[in-house]
Design a protein around this nucleic acid. Structure first.
Lengths: 147, 147
DNA sequence: CTAAGTGCAAATGATTTGCAGGTAT
DNA sequence: ATACCTGCAAATCATTTGCACTTAG
């Protein structure tokens, strides 16, 4: 477990306790997966990963806990139109993603030109901006070669 | 019908004919709504709008035709996680949106700083970028005042 | 103890599809 | 004529919810 993952996990536990919610084994395990997994896993992927340690854990439990963790502000949901959300527990705040249309891989790119965008939008539209969503879609290096 | 709307509508008809597909009244009406409606309407909104002229038009017909128009590259689908896509037939290419979390209003903002973003991402990630999706979420001026 | 949480199965809600007629070309 | 379309209703698919049972604090 990396330093960042440990830190993220600790923050989640902290918020959980502060909220007077229970620390069930399933819940802690879900938090652990979210804090260390870099793949932006889907609910299905999280469930699959947990089957080893919790045979028979319910998808409903995974969904309910992710919702809860989201309400604590500790996981970012990256939902797509066609259904099938992915989750980022390492950086639970708005940030850009690059999604491979072929294999579904998702990475967090560097994007210096992002800086003043939100400010520019707020000034131009009169909206009070709360969050953003920026996704680039394309083919990852591996899938490009495979063609 | 504005000049832009007329133009968009003409392009859609053109592509439709070029593809050897039929010009049914329902299909033409859907294209017309998509080419002139600035509200980024949902399927439900489009259906509602058409009920006057086509009592009993099926949601399925609207869905099927939007899919078809999308496959012609003539409408941009703005799909949201919680379900409920919105459509933009006036600018059927990737461009940013500002979405009101309260009333669902969607506008097309100016965003000069968008310029080199795609290039920057492609260079940094090795991905071949095909499209992007940039949404800002917040409160529109009207909803801000209402608080 | 007892409020929360879990597993299971049924319910949802947007979208899709199969089928039995219609209709544009 | 006939391939394409439409309306209707049933089927999907991810997600949510009701319920009876279990468990953390």
């Amino acid at each position: 477990m990396s330093r960042l993952a440990k830190e993220r996990y600790a923050v989640m536990i902290e918020k959980l306790k502060r909220s007077g919610l229970k620390s069930t084994p399933q819940r802690l395990a879900i938090m652990r997966v979210l804090s260390e997994n870099k793949e932006h896993p889907s609910v299905e992927a999280i469930n699959k990963r947990l089957q080893k340690k919790f045979p028979g854990i319910s998808q409903a439990t995974v969904y309910r806990n992710i919702m809860l963790i989201k309400s604590l502000g500790e996981v970012l949901e990256i939902g797509f139109a066609g259904g099938g959300s992915r989750y980022d527990g390492r950086k639970p705040y708005s940030h850009p993603h690059v999604v491979c249309l072929e294999c579904g891989k998702i990475i967090d790119p560097e994007l210096a030109s992002l800086r003043d965008m939100t400010r520019e939008i707020a000034a131009g539209s009169g909206f009070e901006i709360k969050s953003f969503r920026l996704d680039f879609f394309g083919l990852c290096p591996a899938c490009r070669n495979r063609k």
